[in-house]
Design a protein around this nucleic acid. Structure first.
Lengths: 136, 136
DNA sequence: GGACGGGTTAAGACCGCGTCTAAATCTGGA
DNA sequence: TCCAGATTTAGACGCGGTCTTAACCCGTCC
């Protein structure tokens, strides 16, 4: 996504698109991995050398609040960010700690209707395991 | 569970049952909530006034390594411990941050067999939402 | 009994992640 | 251009958790 479109997107969500914010959003909304805040900072600084830690966190929190980004705390220390805000599931590789996406349609969860006393706003399946060596 | 049985259990897992360890294990293996490390320390100190933070963490990690305890990092800061190590699902209350257990049998996940390139060692469904006021 | 030695504990230093604060800087409108 | 509000920066701070070091306990050997 080019910078213009990112700026558009930010504006559409009520965020003034400063240079720093565009750089951060451009990176984090485009990844197909699940970067930590620190990885975001490192990557953004390659293009935009001096961005303070506070600005990175501020911007990530802005994007979170606007629903443009999701945030998980699965294993390991520190949460990870995920630009894929549509429903999907996760696979946590126990060897590497890597978190991989599993498409929403590949799994079905039955029995949610039995939870009568809660309003469900979302759910996901979290699978832990290892990738098979021969299939990698 | 009385102290004798706790000591037995620890010994059976190769942990020498010191007084501190028994006090910690007795509390954390008996709760039906999901305490943080800090809550464990506070509760244990009610019975065993002076236990250092290091000892609490050491013991919790011992129990984790022996598989007597599980540890999650869902929402909010700091992980929580769970003495229920059999499979079950979780409901995360978005209002209070509370984490509740959902029995394994109440939900069914279909489609796991489509993940052919991984060895699954475990999985759970994580549901986010709010408890209905009128049903509480 | 007294000395030794391994395992356990205590207290506090330390570290990493994230937030907060205060001051400097930028931006856009009058 | 000038001003006011928004944004950014650097560093202090707070919290959760780990590490270090010394003290302690307890069984064994002399």
């Amino acid at each position: 996504m080019d910078e213009w479109k990112i700026a558009e997107l930010l504006r559409a969500n009520g965020i003034s698109p400063s240079a720093q914010r565009v750089a951060i959003a451009r990176y984090v909304l485009g990844v197909d991995t699940h970067p930590t805040a620190d990885q975001v900072m490192t990557e953004v600084r390659k293009r935009f050398p001096i961005v303070s830690r506070a600005t990175v966190y501020n911007t990530l929190n802005l994007l979170l609040n606007k629903g443009l980004l999701a945030h998980y705390n699965m294993g390991g220390p520190g949460g990870v960010f995920d630009p894929n805000v549509r429903g999907h599931h996760h696979f946590l590789d126990e060897e590497t700690g890597q978190l991989l996406d599993i498409s929403w349609d590949s799994l079905k969860v039955a029995g949610l209707e039995s939870l009568t006393d809660v309003e469900i706003s979302g759910y996901m399946v979290v699978i832990r395991g290892r990738r098979k060596k021969d299939a990698r």
